[in-house]
Write a protein that binds this DNA or RNA. Structure first.
Length: 466
DNA sequence: TGAAATGTTGGGGCG
DNA sequence: ACGCCCCAACATTTC
């Protein structure tokens, strides 16, 4: 019997329940060495994402400790670290859960080939999505490029049952050395923002499961009607947990499905949102260029403005358009932003300010604790019009109209803008000194009139479409 | 998962 | 009772 240790390389799957890679490894009976590698690809991520990742790693390390295992932390290129760890421990195999974005794919392919070259058995398993991207195809074998048919194809599909969490993990006879999480300084890029943002995070598997239960017991019923109201707590808020794999998409699917069968009105709409995430992952797998280039190549010649002074005001929540600024400040303080607000600020940047969607994508990547490469790219290209199933070019959100509809009493705007609001004050505590913003900085006049910005965008976009 | 302009309809006030 | 006007509400079209 093979009793050589197996290395479990954790990345965006920091959970114990419904963790196929982990369960399969436990079933072998071999000693297991869980490891998290801070590799250059991960270090390249945005400030908020790296900081939030650190919280997740800490929570996962604690969860592993509770079942008798130690999460080993190592920094360096993944192939190098995993090879070294294998030699140190006598491990003969490495397992991980698959990722689908181009950067992860390139790294993982190189790691797999490199490990195999060293005689180490390397295997990746599913776990981050409901269905492997290559298993969902159109009638003629192509890939779905429009959401609705994708939804119709995915909805009736059987999703595999969740696998239980292991009760215990058997470690190696001698524990390999681990670095200390504190020494990674993952909060460094957050400057003064980490302390401000911390209370808004829901970290770890236990908290994520509790939120799913609470959401399915209550808010899901009104999800379809209430989810767009930005001041309300009507959404699941599970995106950050999905990002780090603190909860499995399959568990959410099964929970949502059950709620739907029990007749909770909003449950199907909720499932649809989960499938939007799925759609993003399938798209990024089949069209990896979506993260960096116009998904529709016809857009390549379009004269977007590059980064510019207006975009800087957008980043700083100082456009003078209250709903846009409220949303940008919410993101800067909390690391998240209401879904509808994301569409509105993205429309404002790409349409009213005619700024390249990649400028917005980069800022979201820097600020969001729920950042993931697939959803971020799909969302931005969807709004800009260059993406799959994209909004037609003339679909331009009017932030004032959206505010009237989805923040009718102004509560969301007031929460993030009004001088007397503690959340609005948090923003001034969190922003870099270099921005030169103080609480008494006067609120600016709009960077562009709504009618003027809309007219300018329509003219430019109509010319592109001519 | 849009907005604004334009067109249509129908109820009520009023002569 | 009737026609006329106004206008809100709704529908359709256009960007």
């Amino acid at each position: 019997m093979n009793d050589a240790p197996l290395i479990l390389w954790f990345r965006r799957d920091l959970r114990l329940f419904d963790q196929p890679m982990l369960s399969a490894a436990v079933a072998t009976g071999r000693p297991l060495i869980p490891v998290f590698v801070l590799d250059p690809e991960t270090e390249a991520q945005g400030a908020a994402a790296k900081w939030r990742l650190g919280l997740s790693v800490a929570a996962f390390a604690a969860a592993l400790r509770a079942i008798g295992a130690t999460l080993i932390l190592r920094r360096g290129p993944a192939l190098e670290v995993l090879g070294t760890l294998a030699r140190e421990t006598g491990a003969t195999g490495v397992r991980w859960s698959r990722l689908y974005d181009p950067i992860s794919k390139a790294r993982d392919q190189a790691v797999k080939a490199g490990l195999k070259g060293q005689g180490i058995d390397a295997e990746s398993l599913a776990g981050h999505v409901l269905h492997e991207p290559w298993t969902v195809a159109t009638g003629d074998g192509g890939t779905y490029k429009v959401f609705t048919p994708f939804w119709r194809a995915v909805r009736p599909r059987e999703v595999a049952a969740c696998v239980p969490a292991p009760a215990a993990l058997r470690g190696p006879a001698v524990l390999p050395v681990s670095e200390r999480l504190e020494d990674w300084h993952l909060a460094a890029g957050m400057a003064r923002g980490a302390a401000v943002a911390a209370p808004f995070q829901r970290v770890g598997e236990v908290a994520a499961l509790a939120r799913l239960d609470a959401f399915l017991a209550g808010p899901v019923a009104g999800y379809a009607e209430r989810r767009d109201f930005m001041a309300e707590d009507a959404t699941s808020g599970l995106a950050e947990n999905l990002t780090y794999g603190e909860i499995s998409p399959r568990q959410i699917w099964h929970g949502g499905w059950r709620a739907m069968q029990e007749g909770r009105a909003g449950a199907e709409t909720f499932l649809k949102e989960l499938v939007w995430r799925e759609f993003a992952y399938h798209l990024v797998f089949h069209s990896p260029q979506i993260t960096t280039r116009n998904w529709r190549e016809a857009w390549d010649g379009f004269g977007w403005r590059d980064d510019n002074a207006d975009a800087e005001r957008w980043r700083r929540g100082m456009t003078g358009e209250p709903l846009v600024d409220a949303a940008m400040r919410q993101m800067y303080v909390t690391g998240t932003m209401h879904n509808r607000a994301r569409m509105i600020v993205a429309s404002y940047l790409t349409k009213h300010l005619l700024t390249d969607w990649r400028v917005g994508l980069d800022w979201f990547a820097e600020c969001l604790t729920d950042w993931d490469p697939a959803s971020n790219a799909m969302g931005w290209q969807w709004v800009a019009g260059s993406g799959p199933d994209a909004a037609p070019y003339f679909r331009i959100f009017n932030p004032a109209t959206q505010a009237e509809k989805f923040d009718p009493d102004g509560a969301y705007r007031a929460k993030w803008l009004h001088k007397s609001s503690p959340r609005a004050r948090d923003f001034f505590v969190a922003v870099p000194r270099a921005w030169g913003l103080q609480q008494d900085t006067p609120y600016p006049a709009p960077v562009v009139g709504l009618a003027e910005g809309r007219g300018r965008a329509l003219a430019a976009l109509a010319a592109r479409n001519a």
